[in-house]
Design a binder for these strands. Structure first.
Lengths: 217, 217
DNA sequence: CGTTTGTTTGAAATAACTCAACGGGAGTGG
DNA sequence: CCACTCCCGTTGAGTTATTTCAAACAAACG
């Protein structure tokens, strides 16, 4: 199923769905900047449980900490067909000597990842299923908007319900039911991989306040 | 209940339990290195739900990213009486010019936090209550051992069961029941704030494999 | 020594999971 | 172009892990 990745000139590479960008504990001297497509970092248990730890979207650096650590701690896999530019340490340093920009933007992206994980820990620890999913959909909305991947409140959402489940720490079946509910409430539309946000404010409200009576306190 | 913190000479400060080291969105030009005591970073919802995002133990830098961001994103509060040395940006830079060590160790601690969050996301997303608690107790064991705060498999565990609950994303009542079980299985002893690990291997095993039949796959 | 804070226990409620089956759709090969 | 397969989404019914509420108790605190 998985063939060899094509190396294109100038550090550009193409991966297809389910192909790994990095394996567990693999040494690396470069990182990727994603041009197109989605990838994720995940952790697996022998019994099959999987948790997605980080999502990488177009325009984002994939695993900036590799540059400092020298190894990838966890596997990274493409969730869609994916095009990425690979940046080596020397390449970045060369640029740095000119503008000192390269390292700064890496560090920035490191902090972004750090802050995003803060958010995810909160979501997983204290939000209900509905809140978690709404929160994720809003996050994707914001992240994709920055690179103009949101057009008229619509974006391509290539994740399967299994993927979604492994992000928000739920079962795929339950993700399905929550999505049904969001559709029934006319908050979103979701056909195939096309997600339309019908009511972003309603979605944001649900992302932090449950439909139940929890908000009474 | 909360009085003004005492400033001691040379950037040393003492906080007491429940006193804040930082508030939400507060600007800072310094970070703390904890000498003694525990602190945590948390996030709160209006309805009272709280999630602890990061734990800070003796010897660790509290919120190294402040140096880069200039602000504390979330509140940080002392979980015990606490003594910390405050390091300013200039102070660190001065040292850096001499040994280039200061910045490196900050960056290292940044990466440690990043990796720890990876772990927590996994735990919250995919582990059962028992697994999460065992995982946490093991993590504390390892982290405290590095600074010789573990003596004969015993360490001071100043967290209340509410604190524990807000770390592992459970209710305090359920934390209590799981702890009972761990005691009954002779894995730990816990009197007051004194925790003795009777069977670290058993604890580690439970931290990743449940007692239930989940491991059959 | 009283007051507050934290722990323990029981019983009932519920959110989310598991299992299982069905259906559609997309790609694949004949 | 059709048939086949596989992946993914959908639905129902029953189960279980965890929560909530409430009350009693113990321990720490000032």
């Amino acid at each position: 199923m998985i063939e060899e990745a094509l190396s294109t000139r100038d550090g550009n590479r193409v991966f297809h769905r389910h192909e790994h960008l990095a394996r567990h504990a693999q040494k690396t001297d470069h990182i990727f900047k994603i041009e197109e497509g989605w990838a994720c970092q995940y952790r697996l248990l022998i019994d099959g449980r999987r948790q997605i730890i980080t999502l990488f979207l177009p325009g984002e650096y994939c695993e900036p900490q590799w540059l400092f650590q020298g190894t990838a701690t966890l596997p990274v896999v493409a969730l869609t067909r994916l095009r990425a530019r690979s940046l080596s340490l020397t390449g970045i340093h060369r640029r740095t000597s000119q503008e000192a920009d390269g390292m700064t933007s890496i560090l920035e992206s490191l902090l972004t990842v750090l802050n995003r994980r803060e958010q995810w820990i909160f979501n997983l620890g204290r939000l209900s299923a509905t809140e978690r999913l709404c929160s994720l959909l809003c996050e994707l909305f914001e992240r994709l908007k920055r690179t103009c991947h949101v057009i008229e409140n619509r974006y391509v959402m290539p994740l399967t319900q299994y993927d979604l489940a492994d992000i928000v720490g739920l079962s795929a079946v339950h993700v399905n039911r929550v999505l049904q509910m969001l559709r029934a409430e006319r908050l979103i539309e979701l056909h195939g991989k096309r997600l339309t946000v019908l009511n972003i404010d309603g979605l944001r409200r649900l992302a932090v306040m449950p439909n139940s009576q929890r908000a009474t306190a």
